[in-house]
Write a protein that binds this DNA or RNA. Structure first.
Lengths: 229, 229
DNA sequence: ACAAAAGTGTTTGTTGTACACCCATGC
DNA sequence: GCATGGGTGTACAACAAACACTTTTGT
């Protein structure tokens, strides 16, 4: 017991809700806990804050340690401070949500020493602590945010077809979109680069590839543009 | 020094950005600090978390202690964890933003033992810590959120005229709105109750009073309605 | 009578929505 | 040649934006 304070302090952790998209479904990355409490149960990756370390760093560090993921899009979600959320003591957690292109990260996550695995968003096992609640807040946020900010591109490879993009929105928003209307709207925003490339290895006519252009996006935002899907 | 832990912990605080609206302007509630660091400087109301207390409670408790405000609309804003934001040590703060009807709360805030005062949003004095940054995040959030959720009503008295409502949007979004179009859109949403009352003590034709109906709003949301201003 | 704001009508251009069709490619 | 998806055209309804006008009330 080496660190003493005049007044008691809640403990502080950072947890990550990592979303990934493959050809089938929206998925979430979970790890299986080594230690008590909830040993053996599935949980969100995360861990204790270190003094002197910003919490985004904590989140990223724990994510890499536990699942080998790094350099992912990470954004603060919400801070959960219910005194009873951890049976040991009062632990406040700052939750982050991350978006990754699952195709490029699939392998890493499952070959780590600790067990980590992707679960379909609508087939989540029982989770430790209040992680089910956190996940639900994250999913709500994702559904809302994806409509007002161009963050969905983080779930796709850098170069993608309009169909992939549409599918991404359909999977997350959970409803069908009209092809023509989607394309018209998307292209009209002027934030995509049309590439001189088409997809390969498909059993039908190959589609043109596009790339999200953040520079164009920021420029349009400066002029009052509001992304809306 | 009574409380000891195996590993060091950042300290934890809650701060409040309280917005109020009067006839003139959007304002923010600030307090003048008693103690070092930044003694005498203006700052956001807030204070240290207590173990066993959810942080919303911390925020509300500190707000009441320092400014006499209570029963206000309070929502979590963001958690700031830069290790250098407090010169003493690593202090993580969870910021909240609050909306109050300034007309009903004006007196309380300025008669408390500690100095507390309302400042115009575009005339803010230098602030302690990173509070300027926090305020700016809060203002951005307010401008964004007010367009997608009916929280603006918290800034008005329970019964209000359409003109008051329009003025509120104009003050916060910082641009003029067309009267007729505003009314059409607002009333069409079907989330206001038209009252059998009109305003009094005005030097012109008295306008009808309305009331926000949260029940109607929630019902419409269930059916897929999205508030958008 | 006038000032001030309430409250209503209408027109025009832009978007959203719903379909329908032809085109290119691999099997 | 057929299945699969790429890519485009269009028509109608709904909405946003701009503006003008009439009505009511206190001074």
């Amino acid at each position: 017991m080496a660190f003493a304070y005049k007044y008691p302090r809640p403990a502080l952790t950072a947890d990550c809700v990592v979303f990934g998209l493959d050809d089938e479904n929206l998925k979430v990355l979970l790890i299986q806990r080594d230690n008590e409490p909830f040993a053996g149960q599935w949980a969100l990756p995360g861990g204790f804050a270190q003094v002197g370390e910003p919490l985004e760093k904590t989140a990223m560090r724990e994510l890499e340690e536990e699942t080998n993921l790094k350099n992912v899009f990470l954004e603060q979600l919400y801070t959960f401070s219910d005194p009873n959320r951890d049976p040991r003591e009062h632990v406040v957690t700052v939750a982050y949500f991350a978006l990754v292109n699952l195709a490029e990260h699939k392998v890493h996550a499952s070959t780590d020493a600790r067990r980590a695995a992707w679960f379909d968003i609508d087939n989540i096992p029982p989770l430790a602590f209040d992680h089910k609640k956190i996940l639900s807040v994250a999913y709500d946020r994702l559904q809302g945010k994806i409509r007002h900010q161009p963050i969905g591109f983080e779930l796709l490879p850098p170069r993608f077809t309009l169909r992939q993009l549409q599918r991404m929105y359909e999977k997350i928003l959970n409803r069908k979109l009209d092809k023509q209307n989607f394309r018209k709207k998307m292209l009209k925003m002027g934030i995509l680069d049309e590439l001189d490339e088409i997809e390969t290895d498909v059993a039908h006519r190959a589609a043109r590839l596009y790339r999200f252009n953040d520079y164009k996006y920021r420029n349009r935002v400066k002029k009052g543009f509001i992304f809306e899907m």
